[in-house]
């Protein structure tokens, strides 16, 4: 754990969960940028999924190619070659991203099931960055990896949007909870680094003076701070913001429905937990 982190930064590492998708490559760049802003190291984690390795050993294991619809046989040997090649490629990509931002980075190669392996290495001030739709196994009951990781020790999760739109400022949501205090403080840190304004939405029907003062205290050091009352659902308010924010920092104690709705807005999200 890195204890030299900036005040207002509850994070010590950013863990990027790597897989071969293009979304992950974009996420890696985004996470590296954030790590550089927060002054924390970047850790790339690649898990050789045992489910898929075991699947390849089944006598009738077949692969339907997504590009042509053709069917071909799988083998354990082929899967191993594939995992080795992917691991090497992702390691190079991680190192390149680290060099470009001059940040410390390391690569973790694990073997097992993704959520199990992540749970094994995650620490309480880690931010987990994971691409949407991640996972080598599309499971029957639950394919939402973030949901499955919610029980881990992580300090937060990073979700990334690839939409190319003009964005401005950092938005944090304040509920009065300890995790929302951390969310606002982190949002203030990022806004300060980027030189952009911080907008804080205070969840609840009305803006209480005490909460406003708390926000101002937490956002000290940021040139431009705007405090707004949520007055209803935060997701609805976020939808109307023009331009949309560069990043939304949420406390994990928002209701599950609210979180889901916000995630559907396809915004870069940081979900901060109480650890």
């Amino acid at each position: 754990m890195n204890d030299d982190t900036t005040p207002g930064n509850p994070l010590s590492r950013i863990l990027v969960v790597l897989d071969p998708s293009a979304e992950t490559r974009s996420l890696l760049d985004y996470a590296a940028e954030l790590a550089a802003e927060l002054g924390v190291p970047l850790v790339g984690v690649f898990v050789e999924d045992t489910d898929i390795a075991e699947f390849a050993e089944l006598p009738f294991a077949r692969e339907i190619c997504i590009s042509a619809g053709t069917v071909r046989a799988l083998s354990r040997q082929r899967m191993q070659s594939y995992f080795r090649a992917e691991a090497a490629r992702l390691r190079r990509a991680l190192e390149a991203a680290g060099r470009a931002r001059r940040i410390s980075c390391s690569f973790e190669l694990r073997r097992g099931r993704v959520e199990t392996e992540l749970a094994a290495i995650v620490q309480d001030r880690d931010l987990i960055a994971i691409a949407p739709g991640f996972g080598t196994v599309v499971r029957a009951r639950d394919h939402d990896i973030l949901g499955r990781l919610s029980g881990s020790a992580a300090a937060g999760f990073l979700a990334f949007s690839q939409r190319r739109v003009v964005r401005d400022g950092i938005l944090a949501v304040f509920t009065g909870s300890p995790e929302s205090e951390r969310a606002v403080a982190l949002g203030a840190t990022i806004a300060g680094r980027r030189g952009v304004p911080l907008r804080v939405v205070v969840a609840g029907p009305a803006l209480e003076p005490a909460m406003g003062e708390a926000v101002q205290r937490l956002a000290r050091g940021v040139d431009r701070v705007e405090v707004m009352a949520g007055e209803g659902r935060v997701a609805d308010m976020l939808r109307t913001l023009v331009p949309p924010p560069q990043m939304v920092v949420l406390p994990a104690d928002l209701s599950g429905d609210e979180l889901k709705r916000i995630r559907k807005l396809d915004l870069p999200l940081l979900v901060i937990r109480r650890t």
């Binding site: 071969p20 898929i52 294991a61 692969e63 190619c65 082929r78 899967m79 080598t136």
Partner: peptide, 17 residues
């Protein structure tokens, strides 16, 4: 199951392949 080039189907038992 997502495979290197596409998808496959695997029998499950106890939430594992």
């Amino acid at each position: 199951i997502r495979t290197p080039m596409g998808f496959g189907f695997a029998p499950m038992r106890n939430d594992e392949v």
